[in-house]
Nucleic acid binder design. Structure first.
Lengths: 152, 152
DNA sequence: TGCCAATAGTTAGCTGCGCTAACTAAAATA
DNA sequence: TATTTTAGTTAGCGCAGCTAACTATTGGCA
């Protein structure tokens, strides 16, 4: 702080900084908007996200899942427990290394992922459809960058 | 489910849907990545975001603040209480309508907003600086769209 | 004028999700 | 064989969302 930059041309120092800031704010508001769509199904954002990794990332250990979701092991352990209680995933012990547990999706899990994601994302999809072709191109071009900034 | 679409042309039905999906996932991961940067300052994402609205949106009622942050009144009431306890905002009663309370930032609040945002967003800023000029242009072009999808 | 409905905000109490610390069990290693 | 390392769980904390129910004030209206 203190370099408040009294009157320079740009008032906010750095274009990259402005970009980061707006991205940050937009991400917060986007998720808050979507959060309300999914409570009906009992599939919160973290559960949906984890389930998605399990469905598409095959049987996966708790540790790897935690890393993929950028969360600590105990957090993922509890998320998996919740998903298991809902019948969406099952734990499969490793045959040779008995410390390891792999998580895989049940048929119900796969089904609910589609349904939950649909409900949650439909509102977004609808808005995206309203974009012009050029706008949609711009959004498409930026998504990989956005993903990279998100740390994958 | 089941319409896993064995071999059709597109495999995933709708381009807008794919876009929505990736945007959703990226937003989740972006925020999780950033969340870890701010705990040091005791300024969580929701507090930082609310404080930002107060700083830039002038004195504002709790209700308007809740609406701006897409949150219910009790949630915002508590967020404001926390910010007040930290000395970052103060409540100003309305002179004529005694039901209304307006929230405004303190000097400390303004200072901490800059510092907190800086810490939180710096990691993003650094990555954005690494982008090529073309990539940065693409990101810049997409931000307004992203904001629109976020509901403002 | 005096009552009642509407509005602004708070309090109480619940759930979920993030964390660290501390534990158990199994495997790898010295 | 004894020790260390690794995988995962349990316990317990704080924060942030919500609804329901409450207080206080305002505004309308009979």
């Amino acid at each position: 702080m203190t370099h408040r930059q009294a009157s320079g041309r740009s008032r906010r120092r750095d274009p990259a900084d402005v970009l980061a800031d707006r991205l940050h704010a937009a991400a917060i508001h986007l998720l808050r908007r979507l959060r309300r769509e999914d409570d009906a199904a009992g599939l919160s954002a973290p559960r949906l996200s984890a389930l998605s990794v399990v469905v598409f990332g095959g049987p996966i250990t708790i540790g790897a899942l935690a890393a993929a979701e950028q969360v600590r092991a105990p957090t993922m352990s509890r998320l998996v427990a919740a998903l298991e209680a809902q019948g969406l995933v099952r734990r499969v012990p490793d045959r040779t290394d008995h410390r390891i547990v792999r998580v895989e999706a049940t048929t119900l899990g796969r089904a609910l992922l589609q349904a939950g994601r649909r409900r949650r994302v439909d509102v977004l999809t609808a808005d995206i459809r309203k974009l012009s072709a050029a706008e949609r191109r711009a959004l498409t071009a930026a998504i990989p960058l956005f993903e990279r900034l998100a740390g994958r």
